[in-house]
């Protein structure tokens, strides 16, 4: 139909953000889980600090359970998966049942992984479902505007996580360019000043890391409603 309500724009944007958050944090978690084998207790402290989430964990074992699956833990990957679902479920007519089904599958698989003794084995399926979701979105979502808004959410989140998790500068540059490309194709309201400063920090600052706090603030205020 070619028109998208403000409410749906919000859901598309946050669906992009939450699916990306689940995807990237799960992949990072795979590395942490591997390091836990050799490293002492408390390895998660640094990770919490970087993501700016409260370190409420008491042991590696409890971290694995609560951070991955904690239903009452608002920062758990599962809680983020639920938020992705909450945004997706109201977008069936924009996404199509086919694309929506991959979010449903990812959520159902995640929920069923809770009792397993080998979570990473099963959680690989969640990653696969999310990749299928993104592939499906490219293939099935007819409205280009919808795809662009969805991907804006995705790249804002990706860039945010890359900065927080101290990815290589080349990666940051790549993700920044993807975000700019998508943002330019939407009619979302955004702050040109924030975007310009973000570009300066990522592409031109001599010591970009010393400005990462500012970069995150620019990213947080980049897109706004109204």
């Amino acid at each position: 139909m070619g028109i998208i309500s403000m409410e749906k724009v919000d859901h598309l944007y946050w669906l992009g953000r939450y699916t990306e958050r689940v995807y990237t944090t799960l992949r990072v978690f795979f590395h942490i889980y591997d390091r836990i084998i050799e490293q002492p207790e408390g390895i998660y402290g640094k990770y919490c600090e970087r993501l700016n989430i409260p370190n409420i964990y008491t042991s590696n074992r409890q971290f694995v359970q609560s951070y991955l699956f904690g239903e009452d833990n608002p920062d758990s990957v599962y809680s983020n998966m639920r938020r992705a679902y909450d945004n997706a479920i109201v977008l069936r007519d924009e996404l199509s049942s086919t694309v929506l089904s991959y979010v449903q599958l990812a959520l159902d698989t995640f929920a069923s992984c809770r009792k397993t003794t080998a979570p990473l084995l099963e959680l690989q399926q969640v990653i696969d479902d999310l990749l299928a979701f993104w592939g499906g979105a490219d293939d099935y979502v007819e409205e280009e505007d919808c795809r662009n808004i969805l991907k804006c959410g995705k790249y804002v989140e990706r860039l945010d996580l890359c900065i927080r998790l101290d990815y290589h500068e080349k990666d940051l540059e790549k993700e920044y360019r993807k975000l700019c490309n998508r943002l330019g194709k939407t009619n979302l309201n955004y702050s040109p000043q924030s975007l310009a400063r973000l570009e300066e920090i990522i592409l031109r600052e001599e010591d970009p890391k010393s400005h990462y706090g500012e970069a995150l603030a620019c990213l947080g205020g980049l897109i706004y409603a109204g």
Binding site: M1, I3, S5, E7, I89, V90, R92, D93, S96, S97
Partner: peptide, 15 residues
Amino acid sequence: SYLAERTGSALASCT
């Protein structure tokens, strides 16, 4: 939501 998708109608809330 399913009927909106299948009939090509916009799914709208009151707002």
